[in-house]
Design a protein around this nucleic acid. Structure first.
Lengths: 109, 109
DNA sequence: TCCATAATTTGATAGATATGGAATTATAAA
DNA sequence: TTTATAATTCCATATCTATCAAATTATGGA
């Protein structure tokens, strides 16, 4: 992952509502949750939540699909893992002080 | 780690120069590097770099110490690991789709 | 078609962030 | 001292970000 791409991901995670959304959607699993449910669940007005969801989607942390008149958002596991990989590969880089508690089984691209 | 604290860390990493600084300082190891060397190495004016270094330090990603007339910055391994742990513990949460390639040997606080 | 529901886009505004020249502070050497 | 070096703080400015009411778009049901 490019450094500038990683920056955009970190930027997407640098806001409390968005980080809560990501947490919520990972817990929700691949089935995901509708935009309205997320907004109501976190107590955020729909337009504001729409803005945040778009930010997370743009960063590749979540993905959307339409189901009838709802738009369902779900965690993008590949995108999230790319970011984790960047953090561990770029900041770890074989450094035991950082890699210590983790064993990387196979290096993702 | 508190969600809002994690937000501040992600915010610190959401700017290219700062992410480059972190990468550079992890590679530099505990000995670290002086503010001037970092600024010159990345081609950023001293006042701008000083601003970014303060941001990273405030987030607990790096630490500073004075040596003579220089101020040496070094990666804060504990702080970085706390953030990695947050990401894996909060977004992974035992989810194989995210934890797949990593085995967490021991859970840090 | 007409109405209700779900979500997004628009647009205005407030606040936060990034930038770098000029001035200031801190330390060491002449 | 005085001078030079290293870094930070101050300050003005430009840009980006977050917020949400109002308007708009999209879909399904009556």
């Amino acid at each position: 992952m490019e450094l500038n791409t990683a920056c955009e991901c970190f930027s997407a995670l640098s806001q409390a509502s968005r980080l809560e959304v990501l947490k919520r959607l990972v817990q929700a699993g691949p089935r995901g949750e509708a935009a309205g449910g997320i907004a109501e669940g976190l107590g955020v007005p729909a337009p504001t939540m729409s803005f945040h969801l778009k930010e997370l989607e743009r960063a590749g942390m979540i993905a959307s699909r339409r189901e009838g008149r709802r738009v369902i958002y779900a965690a993008d596991y590949g995108g999230i893992r790319n970011l984790v990989d960047f953090l561990l590969a770029d900041c770890c880089a074989g450094d035991r002080r950082l890699c210590g508690p983790y064993i990387i089984k196979e290096q993702a691209s």
